[in-house]
Amino acid sequence: MISLKKLLTITSFALLSTTAFAEGAINPIPVIGNDWRFSGTISGWAPASWTTASASRLSKTADSSISDNLNSASVFAFLTAEAHKGDWGLMADLVYSQMGGSGSTTKYIPNKDDLPNSLYAGQNTKIKETVLTFAGTYTAYRSGNIYLDALAGIRYISLTTSLDANAKLTVDGSTYPISPSLNKSFTNQTTDAIIGFKGRARIADSSWFIPYYADIGKGPGSNTTTWQTLVGVGNAYSWGDVTLSYRAMYFGLDSRVAAIKSLTAGPQISATFNF
């Protein structure tokens, strides 16, 4: 698995090397007109995460490094789409990941015979996270160097945890299950209203720019809050742009079992294609 240092080196090289193909200093500030304009963004996000689960008076926090998340991720998708006509627009952003892990332990029991006795316990865990943001946008400010959209919409959050566990005892070469296998799945979900802003600032009349994004929202429960931020640097081309940024996302979930608070943050490389 690629290390964080290599990941940042590769993405930085990709961001800088593509400058050689730029057709002059393209203005990264969007042009507002009566025609529809569309864009699609594909991203690679390498975050660390911090999750706290609380039930009654008990609370447990689990931290996962960037390396931990990269090693355990099996499926992921980070996609954004936008459509604009005049000052008005629509945006959709998807963060989807599926991570898993497994572990087992075997305790050998001394036996005077040659046949081994042992106690085995194993488990497989899978976590599926879906964060889908829909928002309407309005261009609140535009100049030759700054572009700012206000946004309002909703964020749907779903977190599914699945656990498979089993234990067995081996005595004199024969294996006996200690109890039936445990197969449990729990899903927490919420839909929160959000408001925020997004845009970009041009750097020194060049094709380089600073992208920025921030939103905050609240759901129906006492702990169902959410926010997201992004800031970075990018370069614009005739076909779109490439950005390297730092992205952070937080959400809280209520359930009958526990309240969950999750913060995910790390570097992101993105390619946006304009249509």
Rank of each mutant, 00 (worst) to 15 (best):
L16I: 13
R200Q: 14
N27P: 03
S118K: 14
G136R: 12
D215Y: 02
S181P: 13
S206N: 03
W50Q: 15
N183P: 03
S143M: 08
T225K: 08
S39Q: 11
L159W: 15
K60D: 12
L151Q: 07
D149Q: 13
I216Q: 04
F251Y: 07
M249T: 11
D93L: 11
V75I: 10
T106M: 10
I216D: 02
N27K: 05
S270R: 00
I146H: 09
S255Q: 08
M1F: 11
S54A: 14
F134M: 07
I178Y: 07
S185C: 14
A92R: 04
A214D: 13
A193W: 07
S262Y: 11
Y138H: 03
D93P: 01
T19Y: 14
P267I: 04
S97T: 13
K218D: 11
G136P: 05
A165E: 14
N34F: 10
G252D: 01
S181D: 13
S255F: 03
I210S: 00
E82Q: 08
D114R: 10
S158V: 04
Y96D: 12
H84D: 08
T161L: 09
L244F: 08
N235L: 05
G266N: 06
S43G: 02
L132T: 00
T226E: 05
T41H: 01
K85I: 10
T137G: 01
A265S: 14
A258K: 14
G101H: 02
S162H: 07
G266F: 01
T105V: 14
S56R: 09
A46C: 10
G240R: 01
K5H: 08
T106H: 02
G252F: 01
V31D: 08
K218N: 10
D241A: 12
T272R: 02
A258R: 06
W88R: 03
Q228H: 15
T175K: 08
A258P: 08
G89S: 02
F21C: 10
T224W: 00
T161G: 15
N166A: 06
A193K: 11
N235A: 06
S67G: 09
M1G: 15
T80P: 04
